[in-house]
Amino acid sequence: MLNISGLREGIVLDHIQAGKSMDIYHYLGLKNLECQIAIIKNARSSKMGRKDIIKIEGSLEALDLDILGYVDHNITVNIIRDNQIVEKRSLKLPKTLTNVIHCKNPRCITSIEQELPHIFYLADPEREVYRCKYCDEKYGK
């Protein structure tokens, strides 16, 4: 049995769809953090069959958890303090996304003005459809 030690303080991202942990690692910019990070891939789960788990040591001020809602809003965020889970957060689709997805419309201002942020707003929560703030181009998963 694999044993990954507990966290004194940090967050645990649980119920990640198997194989998606590296996407989350990228989206959250975890490579830029100076803390310990454990990625557990394909862990056994009675509810999901297989799942990924990410443990991040330290505070979560540097993390934009809204991105997690876009990647997979079924992820559970467990806040750890003094070796105890003090809070469990459920995620939802964020109302806006900045520089997470990029507009594919060649006539969009973001194609010409490279320094402009790519901003998308949630247009249809049921279908998980986002639209570009500048040109209204549709972006769906």
Results as ranks from 00 to 15, higher is better:
I101W: 00
I56C: 03
L97F: 05
I112T: 14
L116M: 14
I80M: 11
L122I: 07
T110H: 02
E57D: 12
V100K: 02
I54H: 01
S111L: 01
L122F: 03
R127W: 05
N99H: 09
P125E: 07
C108E: 04
E115M: 11
K104E: 13
T76W: 05
D66L: 10
G69D: 02
D64R: 11
C108T: 07
N74K: 15
D64F: 04
H118T: 07
H73T: 09
I80N: 07
E61S: 15
E87V: 08
C103R: 01
K88V: 12
I101P: 00
H102S: 13
T98P: 02
V100W: 04
D64L: 08
N74Q: 15
I67P: 00
H118E: 09
R81M: 12
V100N: 04
P117G: 06
L122N: 06
E113K: 15
K55V: 03
R127H: 09
I67K: 14
E87K: 14
I109G: 06
N83W: 09
R107V: 12
P94N: 08
L91R: 09
A62V: 08
E115I: 12
I67T: 07
L116V: 09
D64N: 15
I75F: 02
L65Q: 06
P117Y: 10
F120W: 03
I80C: 07
K95F: 08
N83E: 13
E126R: 12
L122C: 07
I101A: 04
E113G: 05
T98N: 11
P106E: 07
H118N: 15
I67G: 01
L122G: 03
R127V: 05
S59W: 09
S90D: 13
I67M: 06
S111A: 13
